[in-house]
Design a protein around this nucleic acid. Structure first.
Lengths: 243, 243
DNA sequence: GAACATTGCGTAACTTAAACGCAATTTAAA
DNA sequence: TTTAAATTGCGTTTAAGTTACGCAATGTTC
């Protein structure tokens, strides 16, 4: 079982005092910016103009500056592209395949963030920047499809355990909107009445005693997210059967 | 809500063709190697001999080589230190605080791995390499305590959802050993009888029709892990109250 | 006003988890 | 050889949570 190989052993944490010989790699961040339009989970992409990825879509990313924290770089990319600050963001995974970027060794730290899609106004100079339905995306530039898939999976894991989905909704929302969101993210169907019961019984949403308008049917009550109920230890959704 | 700032916008995925100007950062991997001695969760650490961290303990890590994949670098560190291959390993988080390493800007990708502690034979040249009880570790070199905490949390999340704990046990184990492991990792107490029922009913363990020996009490049955039951969609442990 | 769609609320059946009783097996002490 | 102590293995009861529905109320559209 033991086979001691690959000597000599080095350990950066004990032996490294000079790193200039190792300056052979660039680090970037890539942001998977999720939005929800009421029925479909979307992601903000930009059209790549690199020759080898002409007309392919890519994530929003940038090189991490030498004096910049990783999270700060991700927030900067988000801010520059959407104008938004203080949005939910989470580091997901770091991708470092040798030939993932044609310009050289670029190791990228992937983040996803959840924004209110209606708060994002794309500027004229943002030509080539568009919201795409996540489930319709088949291929992307670089390894970005893999990064997207990883972030979608992380979002699914997270939204089951923790009520992060509210970041994708307006402040006032109906139960139908909330359920649509969860069904879109998780790719499942819930029973409407049990879904309502679950969220109400956990105190996660609060009745605003208002109703929606401009709908073609009986208007639904509006609710807001109750932040006090956010930090609970219990899982708040059960998703054992996916269909 | 919209405040478009920080121009001009760059995007590595569309604009970058030369990265040599960005070669100002080193990338390393750090491995949180977990073991279990039958009652306590342990982690393999090495004594730092860097001047500023004299006598502090640090994780096992190394610079990622220019032509090396991230996972490969982590496996290399693990192999060089323990002689083990084909062990469970998972990337957790990337840490890039500006001054986290005295030698310069070193961004490190943290992994944790689960090994059978009895399969690791430390060599003579591994002076300063020791197993430490995770819960007794108060401070470490660099930002390694933060990295360790993050990996412990990830392990806890993972072991609740997925039966990865078997990687820390010998092939044959008793229910008491299994329960001790889960209690040590999660910091909770389970009812012995309900714990047994849960694992048996999910088909996760298989009766070997053997019993342990060299114990000072009634010997327990030995079980083995049933890999077929590994990939289930259902959560297999509920941990809502921590005490 | 009738047909239709959707919302809001309730209830029964089922499944799972939690709490706990108790006999069987082995070691160690009397 | 018996007895006490510790631990294992298996079971039952109770509580809690989930799932599957029924159905009236409220609105729009024709």
């Amino acid at each position: 079982m033991q086979s001691h190989t690959s000597f000599p052993i080095k350990n950066i944490n004990t032996h490294l005092t000079e790193i200039k010989d190792y300056f052979k790699v660039a680090v970037s961040v890539d942001c998977v910016i999720f939005g929800f339009d009421g029925s479909v989970l979307k992601v903000l992409l930009i059209k790549s103009d690199l020759a080898q990825y002409k007309n392919k879509w890519s994530l929003l990313g940038d090189i991490v500056r030498p004096d910049e924290e990783l999270d700060a770089a991700a927030y900067r990319v988000l801010r520059e592209r959407t104008g938004l600050e203080n949005v939910y963001m989470e580091q997901v995974h770091t991708f470092g395949a040798l030939n993932r970027h044609p310009a050289g060794r670029v190791i990228t730290v992937a983040y996803y963030s959840l924004v209110n899609i209606h708060h994002v106004q794309l500027r004229v100079s943002d030509f080539g920047l568009h919201w795409h339905a996540v489930k319709d995306i088949k291929q992307m530039a670089f390894d970005h499809k893999q990064i997207l898939d990883t972030c979608v999976k992380r979002l699914q894991d997270r939204i089951i355990e923790h009520p992060v989905g509210f970041n994708l909704l307006p402040k006032k929302f109906s139960l139908r909107e909330l359920q649509n969101l969860y069904e879109a993210v998780l790719g499942v169907k819930f029973d409407r009445r049990n879904f309502r019961k679950k969220f109400l019984s956990m105190g996660l949403i609060e009745d605003l005693h208002e109703v929606e308008n401009d709908v073609r049917h009986r208007p639904a009550k509006l609710y807001k997210f109750n932040e006090k109920a956010m930090w609970k230890n219990t899982r708040f959704l059960n998703v054992n059967s996916i269909d």
